[in-house]
Design a protein around this nucleic acid. Structure first.
Length: 626
DNA sequence: AAAAAAC
């Protein structure tokens, strides 16, 4: 198998020259066993590197030392002051930092500032790189422009009064935008009957084939029965129809009594109806479909043997748009299922088949996974979906978008005809209409009444800044205590930002689709456990992912789609907790972001900032600002 | 045009 793009690549060892004295002794702080064995390239003095040395080792000759990046050189505008390092650098640095590699050879903490930060620096040159043209340090503009400006010192900032002259962004001076009527839930419109106008099944061979660029349009919401929060007051999971074991399992998961969306949909699911559920991010949708799904399977098998029968075919299927989300759903559903003797398994890509096939052979009741691998196994005849009588689409609107719709429909076609279908999302809209018309029968549609921004626990800020100040502002925002989730629009930029933050001594890692599954999971797990200050993500982490106590969501790039804004934001402020979302916007993108927020029906405070401003520090430190 | 999702 070819090397995965994101996997660390070992540099070939250099053979010729003899080890230098400086690295020979195990007591020397530069000592590395493998260097002694393999030999070290000519590094005359260990203390400092010449630019040639650095160039010879394939590194950016002007790469800064850690910690200075944010403050240096941004305003020259002539070239980026910071450039990405090779991908494995953060990984290796992490190994060094955590001591998993070379623990004993690692210098005492105090020594580290005096020498290059990475073991990489001690590695031999790679001869094959020498021929490639390299950036020449001597051709750079003189350093003086950078050296004159010291690293930004908070205490040297002008007193507050001096800064008042800078205009604060004034909402009222913004260009008027067309008055779009607020979307209504349409309680007075006739309820749509999805069945009667269902068209004959259309051929769909070409649907995914052609690329149709779509605007970020706000689709009509579906008619829904409003769930009034107060109605579920004092109602227990047991009252809703769940059995004792399941209620106990829910309590152990921390769900003592039902959230509104759960109170609304659980009885409907138990009644066997097709259900569309819309509850905002962090409102408890997983339990809303997971718990009644288990209860239903249990009721349907009443009388059958409770024992796990080998080869038993799955009777329920839960589809999610990302592997991490599928895993997370399983972490909630599995204990509920196990409490009544049912088994779940995860079927998703990026991992070997063997384990998944083994689990299927042992017999499984609920399959949870992503479309690709499920379609794959199913087409191979190794996953029989014909007994699936309950299918859930989590993030259903997303699952109905281009690229997902086709495999999702293929999978739905393989499930038992007439099986129950449950569609859930925080942004459920008419985008699911085609699937609904094709596969659902008289769905009952639910949403929680009064879920608008006014009732939200999330606070939105837009920081308008010079494009070239972005990195500095990001570093300031990401410093400080607490978990910061940073979103970038592309994988490459996410990777760059993680490197950049790590360089700035902010423990950071990245998660995106270019990384192998184990690195994706490891990054997310480290972040969850509080071992990272910042996790930089693409939209792979925008939907559904729950991490306790993310206090700040930073959008280094504004998203393209309003739904993405809503889902990214929803990584904070979960289950009624408070949270802050900060979007970094270069001046020339203001209009675009205004439109985006308007589609998302979000009102944010707009603030003009420069690096070092109090606002930024306060946001980083979680100080509430009115 | 990007991201995600199979090998």
């Amino acid at each position: 198998m070819p090397q995965k793009k994101g996997a660390p690549v070992r540099a070939p060892k250099f053979k010729s020259s003899a080890p230098k004295s400086g690295s020979k002794s195990p007591k020397h702080r530069g000592y590395r066993a493998e260097d002694a064995a393999a030999g070290t390239a000519s590094a005359p003095k260990k203390a400092r590197w010449s630019s040639d040395d650095r160039v010879a080792r394939g590194r950016n000759a002007e790469r800064p030392r850690g910690g200075e990046s944010a403050a240096r050189g941004e305003r020259t505008g002539e070239r980026p002051n910071w450039e990405p390092r090779p991908k494995q650098s953060r990984f290796e640095r992490d190994a060094q930092r955590t001591g998993r590699v070379d623990r004993d050879a690692r210098p005492a903490r105090g020594d580290r500032d005096e020498r290059p930060r990475y073991n990489r620096d001690d590695r031999p040159a790679r001869g094959d790189r020498d021929e490639r043209p390299r950036y020449n340090r001597d051709e750079r503009p003189a350093r003086h422009d950078r050296d004159e400006r010291p690293r930004y010192n908070r205490d040297d900032r002008p007193a507050r009064g001096d800064r008042d002259e800078r205009p604060r962004y004034n909402r009222d001076e913004r260009p008027a935008r067309e008055d779009r009527p607020r979307r209504e839930f349409g309680n007075d419109r006739p309820r749509r009957d999805f069945r009667d106008d269902r068209p004959a099944r259309a051929p769909r061979q070409d649907e995914a084939a052609r690329f149709v660029p779509t605007d970020d349009v706000v689709l009509e919401r579906l008619e829904a029965q409003a769930i009034v929060a107060g109605d579920s007051e004092g109602v227990s999971f047991g009252d809703l129809g769940l059995g004792d074991n399941i209620v106990r399992a829910l309590a152990e998961l921390g769900a003592a009594s039902p959230f509104p969306i759960q109170a609304g949909t659980i009885p409907e699911v138990l009644a066997g109806r097709d259900v569309l559920g819309r509850g905002r991010t962090g409102s408890g949708k997983t339990i809303a479909f997971g718990a009644p799904l288990v209860e239903r399977l249990l009721r349907m098998q009443a009388g059958d043997s409770k024992r796990r029968q080998p080869g038993r075919k799955p009777r329920a299927l839960i589809l999610a748009p990302t592997r991490e989300l599928a895993l997370q759903i399983d972490r909630t559903v599995q204990p509920i299922a196990r409490s009544v003797g049912l088994f779940t398994t995860q079927i998703y890509g990026g991992v070997p088949y063997a384990r998944q096939l083994g689990a299927l052979d042992r017999g499984v009741d609920i399959v949870i996974g992503t479309p690709g691998r499920i379609q794959d196994l199913s087409a191979q005849g190794r996953l029989d979906l014909s007994q699936v009588v309950v299918t859930v689409l989590d993030e259903a609107d997303h699952m109905c978008e281009l690229g997902f719709a086709e495999p999702v429909q293929d999978i739905l076609d393989r499930t038992s005809e007439g099986g129950q279908k449950l569609l859930f999302s925080a942004t459920l809209d008419k985008g699911v209409a085609e699937i609904v018309e094709r596969y659902l029968v008289e769905p009952s549609v639910h949403e929680v009444a009064g879920e608008d921004q006014a009732s939200s626990t999330i606070d939105h800020r837009v920081l308008v800044m010079d494009q070239r100040d972005k990195l500095a502002v990001l570093a300031e925002l990401a410093s400080g205590p607490g978990k910061k989730l940073v979103f970038a629009r592309t994988r490459a930029f996410a990777e760059q930002l993680a490197d950049f933050l790590d360089e700035a001594d902010i423990a950071a890692d990245a998660i995106h689709g270019d990384l192998n599954q184990s690195r994706r999971q490891r990054a997310l797990e480290k972040f969850s456990r509080g071992r990272l200050q910042a996790l930089v993500a693409t939209d792979v982490a925008a939907r559904g992912i729950h991490v306790d106590d993310v206090d700040l969501v930073i959008q280094a790039d504004a998203p393209d789609e309003y739904k993405s804004y809503l889902h990214r934001s929803g990584r904070t402020g979960r289950a009624g907790k408070s949270g802050v979302v900060v979007t970094l916007v270069p001046r020339n993108r203001r209009r675009k972001v205004e439109d985006l927020l308007s589609r998302a029906e979000i009102t944010a405070e707009w603030i003009q900032v420069r690096p070092g401003d109090d606002v930024i520090r306060d946001l980083a430190e979680g100080v509430a600002i009115s």
